[in-house]
C-alpha cells in the first residue's frame, strides 16, 4: 500500500474550512479505509494501554510501604525536594519584614501539642545538650541549663514577619527574642570542638548538621537543618507585640523562623540537642514534609 505520506513536493493544503461535520466517509473496503481503520485501532489500543499502565503505576506507588505517614516513593520525593531546596538555600536571603504596625493585635493560636502539662515558669530551664558523637555521655554529663534571663541577656532582636501555617493561612506578627545564632556564638555547644560560630556564611566544619527541639513533656518535637537554625531571622522568641509570651503562644520561650512553616515554630522549648541525623519531627511522622522549608 502506497499510503504513507508522500515526500513529493506537492503544494500544501491552504487555509480552508474545518472538515468537521462534513461527510467524510471513506469508500468501505478501500485501501484508504483499511489504512484509517488500522491506524485508528492501533492508536486507541496504544492510548488505552498507556492509560492502564498509568493507573497501575500510580496504584503501585500508593501501595508501597508507609514511610512516616506517606508511601515511601512520595517520602523520597519530599526528601529530594528538601535536598534541592537546601542546595539552593542562601542565608543571605531574608524573609520580608513588615512595619510593626502591620502586625496583628491578636495572634491566632493553632495547636497545643506539648502545652498540656503543668509548667512552673519560675523553675523552667532551657536544657541544651552539646553536640557530641557519644550521645549517652552528652545526655547524662554535659547537658547545660539556661534561665530565661540568660536568653534575654543576648542581643534583643525585634522583627515583624509573616507566620505561614501549613494549612494555608498566614499572619504578620511582631516578635522579639534572641537570635539562635547569637546563642550559639556565646555558648558554642553545636560544634564538636567547642568553637563558636563567627560567620554564618562560613560555619565551622564540625558544626552539627541538625538541631532538635522538644517540649518539656516531650509531646511535641521538631527537627531543623542547621542552616535554617543559624539564619539571622531564626529567633529564640520570648515576646509577641512587646509582651511576654502567653502560655498558649509558648511561654516562656519558643522558636520563630520565617524559613519554615508554623509547624516548626515549637512552643515552650524544653530541650535543644544537636544531631548527625534528621531528628524526629512531630508532623513529619504524620505524612508531612520533614523540611517544610521556605
Amino acid at each position: 500500500m502506497a499510503l504513507e505520506p508522500t515526500s513529493n513536493p506537492e503544494k500544501p493544503i491552504p487555509p480552508h474550512v474545518s472538515p468537521d461535520g462534513e461527510n467524510l466517509t471513506l469508500p468501505p473496503g478501500s485501501a484508504l479505509d483499511r489504512e484509517a481503520t488500522r491506524r485508528t485501532r492501533r492508536s486507541f489500543i496504544g492510548l488505552g494501554l498507556a492509560g492502564v499502565a498509568g493507573v497501575l503505576g500510580w496504584r503501585y506507588l500508593l501501595s508501597r510501604p508507609d514511610a512516616d505517614g506517606t508511601p515511601a516513593p512520595f517520602r523520597r520525593v519530599l526528601d529530594a525536594n528538601g535536598r534541592l531546596s537546601a542546595a539552593y538555600f542562601r542565608e543571605t536571603r531574608l524573609a520580608p519584614e513588615f512595619a510593626k504596625s502591620q502586625g496583628v493585635r491578636e495572634v491566632r493560636t493553632n495547636g497545643d501539642a506539648g502545652l498540656n502539662s503543668e509548667i512552673d515558669l519560675a523553675a523552667w530551664r532551657l536544657k541544651v545538650r552539646p553536640y557530641a558523637k557519644d550521645i549517652t555521655y552528652a545526655e547524662h554529663d554535659r547537658t547545660r541549663e539556661f534561665t530565661l534571663a540568660d536568653i534575654k541577656a543576648l542581643p534583643r532582636i525585634e522583627m515583624t514577619t509573616q507566620l505561614k501555617c501549613i494549612e494555608g493561612w498566614s499572619i504578620v506578627v511582631n516578635w522579639a527574642g534572641a537570635r539562635f545564632v547569637d546563642f550559639l556564638a556565646k555558648y558554642p555547644l553545636a560544634t564538636l570542638s567547642g568553637q563558636p560560630i563567627k560567620d554564618v556564611a562560613n560555619p565551622p566544619a564540625d558544626l552539627a548538621p541538625y538541631v532538635s527541639l522538644v517540649t518539656p513533656d516531650e509531646e511535641y518535637y521538631v527537627g531543623l537543618d542547621m542552616h535554617s537554625a543559624i539564619h539571622p531571622q531564626t529567633l529564640l522568641c520570648y515576646e509577641i507585640n512587646g509582651q511576654p509570651l502567653s502560655l498558649e503562644h509558648g511561654a516562656p520561650l519558643r522558636l520563630v523562623t520565617p524559613l519554615k512553616y508554623g509547624i516548626k515554630h515549637l512552643k515552650r522549648i524544653g530541650t535543644i540537642a544537636f544531631a548527625d541525623q534528621r531528628p524526629a519531627d512531630y508532623w513529619a511522622e504524620q505524612g508531612y514534609d520533614w523540611d517544610a522549608g521556605h
Binding site: 493544503i13 491552504p14 474545518s18 472538515p19 468537521d20 462534513e22 467524510l24 491506524r39 485508528t40 492510548l47
Partner: peptide, 30 residues
C-alpha cells in the same frame, strides 16, 4: 461538537479531509 474525525486526530494523528486537487500533500501549510 467537532466530532469523531477531530477527536481521533488527537489520538491517531490523522484527520480525513477532502483535499482539493493539486494540494495533495498530506500536510498543512505552515
Amino acid at each position: 461538537r467537532a466530532g469523531w474525525n477531530n477527536f481521533r486526530s488527537m489520538v491517531a494523528g490523522f484527520e480525513i479531509e477532502d483535499v482539493p486537487a493539486g494540494a495533495a500533500s498530506p500536510r498543512l501549510a505552515p
